[in-house]
């Protein structure tokens, strides 16, 4: 095991997959010679050359469609959409083309491709550099959606996503880039569709993903001191969703909350909450709660903090549910 930060775990995953399979290539704005706006592809251009690590113009739809076409004939392209806020421009290719090709070809043409995109707040950069837009994609049959929270998970899940035969939207929270964690020295992958119980507990289940997992864990630590034993589930993959792990946990705790940074309304927490209500409503000791982003654009500067979930809020709601 070696301790590395989240951003190097991404770089290592890309490097290993580029080395393993010559069908893998990267495209995106500034992914080449400059190594990317956050340095995530640093060194790869020199190692694999300008055709496998391709700098592109500002053409989000064009490069996402490029991946669809290359994927259709057996390549494994990885696109970087620099900020998830820009992914609106790529939705046509993702939702109408990539997601539906296998279906509409009668199961004859696969589209293996990954769109990596940098989401979330923390840089306090305002409306167009801070959003978490996963629920735009969890609504589309045919797409897989991955949102990891640790260096170990991001590396293993990115490698699996590149090897998957379906289009995957892979979301990397910018606020996690300097987070350090243990990563095995040997080769490993993590299957898509498996949640991870990051902390075991018996009183309340906190279901989360991305950066919010760490706030949930911090809240669980504080709650333990007050005698509330919270279980924290990191979904890791939103589609396919590991319902089994969620339901098994809530059957045990009889209380559930969903914590996520995206806008609360019509966000992924609504889906999780509905599944729990549909399956376990008579087992619940309290209504399922959602702690998530405000229904506003994300403001510039420190005001951002007031629009995202906080550890204090998680603690407060958990107490309300348990007492």
């Amino acid at each position: 095991m070696t301790k590395i930060n989240f951003r190097w775990a991404i770089t290592h995953a890309l490097d290993e997959e580029l080395a393993r399979d010559d069908k893998v290539f990267l495209v995106g704005q500034d992914v080449g010679e400059s190594g990317g706006v956050f340095g995530l592809t640093r060194g790869l251009y020199e190692k694999y050359g300008g055709w496998r690590v391709k700098d592109t113009p500002i053409s989000e739809e064009g490069i996402t469609g490029l991946a669809v076409g290359a994927g259709m004939i057996g390549h494994r392209p990885v696109v970087e959409i620099m900020y998830m806020d820009f992914i609106s421009l790529a939705i046509e290719q993702l939702a109408n083309q990539a997601a539906k090709t296998f279906y509409v070809s009668g199961g004859k043409i696969k589209v293996p491709m990954v769109v990596r995109t940098l989401a979330g707040g923390g840089f306090k950069a305002g409306i167009h550099h801070s959003q978490s837009l996963e629920s735009w994609f969890t609504h589309i049959p045919g797409l897989k959606v991955v949102y990891p929270s640790t260096p170990y998970d991001v590396k293993g899940l990115l490698k699996s996503s590149i090897r998957d035969d379906n289009p995957v939207v892979f979301i990397e929270h910018k606020g996690l880039f300097s987070l350090k964690g243990e990563v095995p020295d040997e080769e490993y992958t993590i299957p898509l569709g498996k949640a991870d119980i990051k902390r075991e507990g018996s009183d309340v289940t906190i279901i989360s993903y991305g950066k919010s997992v760490h706030q949930s864990l911090e809240a669980a630590e504080a709650l333990a001191e007050e005698g509330i034993c919270a279980e924290v589930i990191d979904l890791r993959t939103l589609v396919p969703l590991d319902k089994e792990t969620i339901l098994k946990s809530v059957e045990k705790t009889n209380r559930a909350m969903v914590v996520y940074e995206a806008t609360k309304e019509s966000g992924f927490g609504a889906e999780v909450s509905s599944i729990i209500s549909e399956e376990l409503i008579y087992d619940l000791d309290a209504p399922v709660r959602r702690i998530a982003g405000a229904f506003t654009p994300i403001p510039l500067g420190d005001a951002e903090d007031a629009h995202f979930p906080t550890v204090e809020e998680i603690i407060k709601v958990a107490k309300e549910m348990c007492y």
Partner: peptide, 24 residues
């Protein structure tokens, strides 16, 4: 025959990708 679509003009990026893969 690959990539015709009901959304006119959306096949161009797909064609670009096939050409890119062939070049690679």
């Amino acid at each position: 025959i690959y990539g015709p679509t009901g959304v006119l003009g959306s096949n161009l990026p797909i064609a670009l990708g096939i050409a890119y893969a062939n070049k690679l």
